[in-house]
């Protein structure tokens, strides 16, 4: 029973990171039809931002907390640069964006190697995260897992508020639904696209800070997360916030269970298989729109 609980909590931890990454991917794909293969490199940029902030401040506790907004803004601004310089010309051309952003991801990885070197670097977790694990129903739950879970839930709620009640959120939702109608209603869809890319890439940067609590940082850090994040976006339903939440935690727990019982590499393959079979029966993902209108 304790092992089962530990596995579930481990899955929630993996799912928390997947969720943070998938939120941004889903936003940009839903709004612009852009498949951003370089999204994983925004995770890497967030992780190296945490590394630099810790080198500058020294104290692991305050540097971790400061890293979160700094990584959000840094990755967000780089996302805007990518959108403005390349992707704005490629809306609704997913295959083209897939290829172009693959090239961008290679460039960013090489840039990281040039700046930080090929060997991995580490960020020291603060004392309040590296202490004794919490014991929940007899299972040991590392503090970092709880922190990551709380971080992702906080980001989901923050995004829910931004999308649900702010003028920017209304503009984003309107642009996702009908770009031409949004333009002819007086909304600058280009400005909205930039803000969406900023938020989406920024969330990947925040995920990057979280990743530093689980292991070493390397230039190829993002590639290990990006594929599963795409699976979450597709399985949850494109542009569906709550679908992404369920899919991220569902896939995280599934992978964790298979990983514990069979092995991690088999788990990756089986999770793929499960998602492929699932999409045969429900190609629209977990959550689909209900509407009488075409827009």
């Amino acid at each position: 029973m304790t092992l089962v609980l530990t596995t579930i909590v481990s899955g929630l931890c993996v799912g928390s990171l997947l969720l943070l990454i998938a939120l941004g991917l889903g936003l940009t794909f839903g709004q612009m039809g852009v498949i951003n293969n370089a999204h994983g490199e925004f995770i890497m940029i967030g992780a190296y931002t945490a590394y630099l902030v810790q080198r500058a401040l020294g104290d692991p506790g305050s540097s971790l907390l400061l890293s979160l907004p700094v990584a959000f803004v840094t990755a967000g601004l780089l996302g805007v640069v990518l959108e403005v310089t390349l992707l704005r010309r490629m809306h609704r051309r997913p295959l083209d964006t897939l290829l172009v952003t693959f090239g961008v991801s290679l460039v960013l990885q090489q840039l990281a190697r040039d700046l930080f070197g090929a060997p991995s670097v580490n960020v020291t977790a603060p004392a309040w995260l590296s202490g004794d694990p919490f014991v929940i129903a007899g299972a040991d739950v590392p503090r970092t897992w709880v922190f990551l879970f709380a971080l992702s839930i906080g980001c989901v709620l923050g995004l829910r508020i931004v999308l649900g009640v702010t003028p920017l959120g209304r503009r984003i939702r309107a642009t996702v639904q009908n770009r031409d109608l949004a333009e002819t209603s007086g909304i600058s869809t280009a400005a909205t696209d930039r803000m969406t890319f900023f938020i989406g890439s920024g969330l990947a940067g925040v995920a990057g800070v979280g990743v530093t609590l689980l292991g070493a940082i390397s230039p190829t850090l993002g590639t290990s997360y990006i594929v599963n994040a795409f699976l979450v976006v597709v399985a949850g339903g494109i542009g569906q916030l709550w679908g992404s939440v369920v899919a991220a935690f569902g896939l995280g727990i599934l992978e964790s269970f298979i990983g514990f019982s069979i092995g991690q590499s088999t788990a990756q393959a089986l999770v793929f298989l499960v998602v492929v079979v699932f999409l045969q029966f429900r190609p629209q993902g977990l959550i689909a729109l209900r509407t009488r209108s075409i827009a």
């Binding site: 939702r173 109608l181 002819t184 509407t291 009488r292 075409i294």
Partner: peptide
């Protein structure tokens, strides 16, 4: 201002 054909609204809003 423009009101397009087809009673278009942002259906999810």
């Amino acid at each position: 201002a423009y009101v397009p054909q087809g009673q278009q609204a942002f259906g999810q809003l």
